[in-house]
């Protein structure tokens, strides 16, 4: 757990967001630190996805401030967020099934030759770099040249994550990375998420898998309920029951290590 002396990479202060008459987020504040994995948990409709989308620049908060490395920033769009170094992996992964891992990892950001080559994709360079990224994440079991449509859910999730870190972001937001995965595949994704943190990234992950995934993989658990942050736990010092209880509103203590 980082000490208070360390500056957070990304800080949210007093975020409000409503859709029509529905208050989706009310006064939510959150700090993400380099090298730390934070779980964002809550019941359906608690505001998890709204919060992650506001951090990804997909939706604009009505009120509140964002600080990136201590400077106030406006997340005016997805491009602004990704320029700062905030990458998001959505639940649908956004992979092209007819392309291989290398092509998916580089999609939209291919290394290409000069104009007279018709912007020929520098396949070998892309492949080497993709190989390096996967090695760094200890994912070398993934075939680089096989169409991702023929791969397992866990491998696809891992490729989507590898893709998000290609240009060295500082913050990675993951929306339900283990939702459709088997236990073993979810464990492998958990390992990968720890690997990201060990490389100094700040990771925020939405998950419903409290007992298996959240407690084991994350450092800190932030609980949202009805758009408010109701609890914050250090993952090592909490049981699954305590977290679930905070999610559903049985025991409302603003607990936490900080």
């Amino acid at each position: 757990m980082p000490s208070d002396a360390i500056q957070p990479i990304l800080s949210l202060r007093g975020i409000h967001k409503s859709f029509g008459g529905v208050q989706a987020l009310t006064d939510v504040s959150l700090d993400l630190y380099s090298g730390e994995v934070v779980a964002l948990v809550g019941d359906n409709g608690a505001g998890k996805t709204t919060l992650i989308k506001s951090m990804a620049g997909v939706i604009r908060a009505d009120k509140g401030q964002f600080f990136f490395e201590g400077n106030e920033v406006t997340l005016s769009g997805p491009a602004a967020a990704s320029d700062l170094g905030i990458q998001t992996v959505y639940q649908d992964l956004a992979l092209c099934n007819n392309l291989d891992a290398v092509q998916n990892i580089f999609l939209g950001r291919e290394l290409t030759g000069p104009w007279w080559s018709g912007f020929r994709v520098r396949r070998a360079d892309c492949e080497r770099k993709a190989h390096e990224v996967l090695q760094r994440l200890r994912l070398s079991g993934i075939s680089l040249t096989r169409n991702v449509g023929a791969m397992s859910g866990g491998q696809r999730q891992n490729i989507a994550i590898a893709r998000s870190i290609l240009w060295q972001p500082k913050v990675v937001l993951l929306d339900e990375p283990t939702a459709a995965l088997s236990h073993t595949a979810a464990e492998a994704v958990g390992k990968l998420i720890r690997e990201l943190a060990s490389h100094g990234l700040a990771v925020l992950v939405i998950s419903h898998d409290i007992h298996q995934f959240v407690i084991d993989v994350t450092d800190r658990i932030e609980v949202l309920r009805l758009g408010r942050k109701v609890a914050s736990f250090a993952s090592k010092q909490v049981t699954g029951e305590q977290v679930v209880s905070a999610m559903v509103g049985g025991n409302e203590e603003p607990a936490g290590a900080r």
Binding site: P78, A79, D92, A94, L95, C96, N97, N98, L99, Q103, L107, G108, R109, E110, T112, S117, G118, F119, R120, V121
Partner: peptide
């Protein structure tokens, strides 16, 4: 088969939303 444009044809045909989100 070799150019970026060609690759984008395949990407769009398979998952237009993914292509759009990739900045294509």
């Amino acid at each position: 088969t070799e150019t970026r444009f060609g690759l984008y044809l395949y990407a769009i045909g398979n998952n237009i939303e993914a292509a759009r989100r990739s900045g294509i």
